[in-house]
Amino acid sequence: MAGSGTAHLRDDPNVLVRVEHMVVEFPISGGRVHAVSDVSFDLVEGETLGIVGESGCGKSTTARAVIQMPRPTSGNVFFRGTDLTTLPSEALRQVRPDLQMIFQDPISSLNPRRTVRDIIAEGLRVWGSRGTWTPERIDELMAAVGIDPRYGERKPHQFSGGQCQRISIARALVLDPKVIICDEPVSALDVSVQAQILNLLEDMKERYGVSLMFISHDLSVVKNISDRVMVMYMGKVCEVAGSDDLFARPAHPYTRALMAAIPGRHSDDDDDGVLEGELPSAIDPPTGCRFHTRCPHSQQICKTTEPEIRGIGDGHFVACHFPQVAGVE
């Protein structure tokens, strides 16, 4: 897999974010890191898009390139029809409040020298009220994310990791954004806390009408929160499908391998064992399908020709020469 193509993009009038042929490369001494290579996807209003893959697959870079931090090497990112990649920096700054982000590391996400109320209200100081929230209603927002407003004058280090993520969520919500990008928001947390934060995210999404891009290496986390899931491998898209559909009939060998790795989930196919071999170098990625070096179903064509993304029904798309689905060959 590891394919290109745009077959999975939708013509919905409610598309908020549409990414086309995005490429992100970093020059390093001795070559270029191909972090994201020709990735396309879209996000419809009110939807949660999960992006999964191993660490190093480019999912975080993809998310950051959507918000132009850093700007992608090539390709386009449309937000409500405006191409962010060509936007001058001041115009981009004007768009930023609509696209907020929650980071993985709860400690690093919050300025250790500022009070929690200060951190949450910062957006309002920059932009003034943009709708729901005003400086007077910060207490209400804190309560909504589950932080006792009486602790507003405390510094971040006095809170637990889970509470810090709640504060991050409040900071993102204060500007009434359209999209919140969640970059592994629970992977630094204890398992017992993870569910609480995921529930809070879903709650907030319902209540304030935001759309989410949810990035995680953990399929089981993505499964419950996402409406649609995109699986990535080495900077390429493998498979895109509705969440239930993807879990019911994973078509890409890589997706199947990821699922086989979830504890307590038994695979119906002996081939889909745990992934073998090392992740190839992102400086010199494999030819053809980037997954062919580790794929149990690899054939000659996989080494030479990169598979295009194609539909296999019900909004289910896969980039593989030999998808593991009955009836498609």
């Binding site: 931090m69 700054r93 930023r96 980071f103 690093s108 500022r114 957006g123 920059v126």
Partner: peptide, 21 residues
Amino acid sequence: RDFVRAARMIGSSHRRIIVRE
């Protein structure tokens, strides 16, 4: 650190990031 990224996401100017963050 991510809080500086978050400040840029909010749309803080470089000046504001240097002074406030």
